[in-house]
Amino acid sequence: MRASLTRRVCAAALLLTSTLTPAVAAAAQPGDPAPSSERAAHARLLGEKIVPYKLDFQGTTVGGLSGLDRNRCTGEYVFISDDRSYLQPARFYTAKLDVDAGGVHSVDFTGTHAFLQPDGSVYPSPSIGDGKAVDPEEIRVDPRSCHYWWAQEGDRPATAGPPVIQPSIQYASPTGAYLGRLRLPANYEITTEDRGPRRNQAIEAITFGDRGRVLTSAIEGPLLQDGPVPDLEHGALVRVTKQTREGRMLGQFAYPIEKIFAASDPNSPWGPDTGVPSILAFPDDPDRYLVLERTWVAGSGYKIRLFDATTRGATDVRAVDSLVAGTPVTPMRKTLVADFDTLGLSTVDNTEGMTWGPALPSGERTLILVSDDNFADDAVTQIVALAVR
């Protein structure tokens, strides 16, 4: 999701449970607090590092980093840029991160490659208007082959004329060569004016689980047929889908995102911006995920929260056409792991990506996160390391 480029100063507000729209509340009954897992994760800050603004690397502009993952084959990390080929062709970066119990000591970029289309060409800028542009948002390293799987949320044009660009999950070689794509659920498709993902709220989150056998994806915001976006009074439900790596549907579930934490500055032209930019499977539990929720409000800044969530016990909604049509739905349960306002960071910005890092001597696991600076000089590319138990 592309948030406003106005400077954001994060305001504190802690919300532990979701309140949904009245129609959904009647079905899902989310007014009761989500049951806490007896083994819910806990997180503490290890450290952070700020990447220089518009760092030049191999003739490209480093920025817009909206997803990352660790490559077990090389020990390096891969970052995806959400530059839609405006500055340079849509691309990814590899980097070495020196992270341990003492914090984030260094971030050294080692390579960059453009994502290639099936014919071997790079993706053009959306300004060309040929329907081939992409909006890269998330990247994962295949646990089996160490190839790259990446998600792009396409485009639902705001006005008549420009072509619809469908969201996709593709896989590529370590040099960006196109290798194929995953067959997506039918309700992920941008169709009519009142169905499918909203503009800039399609697929932003994917993760491998169950030793690489399952690929889970999440829509950033509610589908049009699933009700309105969150406001000050109500949260919303977004769809989380489990598939085999061949594309067979295993289940689809409703994840409850929080209501908006503060009123917008009435003088701002920008409305609130909220959703799920990243999910991450727990290595030892195929039903359990870390879910990142990111909200921006004009005049209040960012609210970044991390939740421990499970599909266990949630309703499989793959056959439910609309989540506000009266069908009873039990959403995924979730428990707050961290509110970034309380971690002691130098700033809280547009955090969009996360991945597991190395284990610590304490028995904790590192969690590495990155913020997307939108190539704006009033934002930052921030690498954060947490210890998660």
Results as ranks from 00 to 15, higher is better:
138 E>I: 01
131 G>K: 06
135 D>M: 08
139 I>S: 06
169 I>D: 05
145 S>I: 11
159 T>A: 03
175 T>P: 01
176 G>M: 00
154 G>R: 04
169 I>S: 04
127 S>L: 02
166 Q>F: 12
168 S>T: 07
120 G>M: 04
146 C>L: 05
161 G>N: 07
150 W>K: 00
143 P>M: 06
118 P>H: 06
157 P>T: 01
121 S>W: 06
162 P>E: 07
120 G>D: 05
123 Y>S: 00
155 D>Y: 00
153 E>G: 01
145 S>H: 11
161 G>K: 09
116 L>K: 13
155 D>G: 00
142 D>H: 14
147 H>E: 15
127 S>R: 12
121 S>D: 14
135 D>N: 15
119 D>P: 03
124 P>L: 09
161 G>M: 06
123 Y>Q: 00
162 P>S: 11
146 C>G: 06
173 S>M: 09
172 A>D: 02
141 V>F: 02
146 C>V: 05
115 F>V: 06
170 Q>L: 13
158 A>D: 07
141 V>I: 15
170 Q>I: 14
148 Y>S: 07
131 G>W: 10
147 H>I: 03
142 D>F: 14
148 Y>N: 09
166 Q>R: 02
135 D>R: 12
167 P>R: 04
175 T>F: 01
149 W>P: 12
120 G>V: 14
169 I>Y: 01
126 P>I: 07
117 Q>I: 00
128 I>C: 03
146 C>A: 06
176 G>A: 05
129 G>V: 10
129 G>F: 12
121 S>V: 04
125 S>E: 11
140 R>H: 09
133 A>H: 07
164 V>I: 15
156 R>Y: 06
168 S>Y: 02
167 P>F: 01
171 Y>H: 14
161 G>Q: 08
158 A>L: 13
116 L>V: 10
171 Y>N: 08
136 P>Y: 08
114 A>Q: 00
145 S>V: 09
130 D>S: 13
131 G>E: 11
116 L>F: 10
143 P>E: 05
174 P>K: 00
141 V>N: 06
128 I>K: 11
122 V>R: 15
134 V>S: 01
125 S>Y: 09
118 P>D: 04
144 R>T: 15
154 G>V: 12
148 Y>R: 05
122 V>I: 12
155 D>P: 00
127 S>G: 02
164 V>A: 09
167 P>S: 07
170 Q>G: 15
144 R>Y: 07
